[in-house]
């Protein structure tokens, strides 16, 4: 297993956000976490990337514990996180944002070639490379956030609600990009409220409800599950 969560719990003050969750991400896969508002999806990703500290349990990446490390050390291990709400650096240019994603890398040639790849994947970012990031549209900002994460050349990509607030045509483009990134060999953990999209992309899915694991299984099975269909797919 590339990433393993063992019985993790996260509290925010007195409030328990996540209770005894176990999950695993095999190398190469797209795994999705779906669920309603406040189910604990974002908290799970934040625990993986070190932004949320565990109250119990442990997280293993490539067989080593990472839950005791600060967020910046976890990036160094190879986990990149595209946070909820994109969180690009608004006053930096597009290219500065992208290069900041490669902050820890020392292989200059590799960084330049990855920058070319990102520009090739997102031609609109190249057009706007000297523009301040906050002047871009939501879809472009999402692409920038994804590109910035790719600049770390991650072994695992965490994505939190990449479709949020975007027009359907842009959502389709983001979905295609996620598939491409995965096809290039980067495993992805995808958190989505758009369960239909997430279950189409993923091979395995976890369903969270109010901080507890409600269901898990192959994505196509959950797609046909009556509870999932009624609660998340609206059919």
């Amino acid at each position: 297993m590339l990433l393993e969560l063992r019985d993790i719990a996260v509290n925010y003050g007195q409030v328990s956000a996540l209770r005894r969750l176990s999950m695993s991400v095999p190398d190469g896969a797209i795994v999705t976490i779906i669920g309603g508002n406040g189910a604990g999806k974002t908290t799970t990703l934040r625990a993986m990337s070190g932004l949320a500290k565990l109250a119990a349990g442990e997280i293993l990446f490539e067989g080593e514990r990472i839950d005791t490390l600060p967020a910046d050390r976890i990036v160094a291990r190879g986990i990149a996180h595209v946070p909820e709400g994109r969180r690009i650096f608004p006053d930096m240019t597009v290219e500065e944002n992208l290069r900041t994603g490669a902050f820890l890398r020392r292989d200059k040639a590799g960084v330049e070639s990855d920058l070319d790849k990102v520009y090739h994947r997102f031609p609109r970012l190249k057009e706007r490379r000297t523009q301040r990031a906050q002047t871009m549209s939501g879809g472009e900002q999402q692409m920038l956030a994804i590109g910035r994460a790719l600049m770390a050349r991650p072994k695992l990509l965490l994505m939190d609600e990449p479709s949020m607030g975007l027009a359907p045509v842009i959502v389709e483009e983001i979905a295609r990009i996620i598939e491409e990134i995965n096809a290039d060999g980067v495993p992805v953990v995808l958190v989505e409220q758009n369960a239909g999209l997430a279950l189409d992309l993923a091979s395995h899915a976890y369903v969270l409800e109010t901080g507890n694991l409600a269901l898990e299984g192959p994505a196509h099975e959950l797609h046909d599950n009556e509870h999932v269909r009624a609660a998340y797919l609206g059919v």
Binding site: L51, A71, D72, V75, R87, F89, D91, M92, R99
Partner: peptide
């Protein structure tokens, strides 16, 4: 400079900066 960018990134969004490997 690399660390200058890290400072600007931290000022704009410390959490997002940490997610790029920048130590607060």
């Amino acid at each position: 400079t690399r660390f200058g960018w890290a400072l600007r990134a931290s000022a704009q969004d410390p959490e997002a900066a940490a997610l790029q490997g920048i130590s607060i």
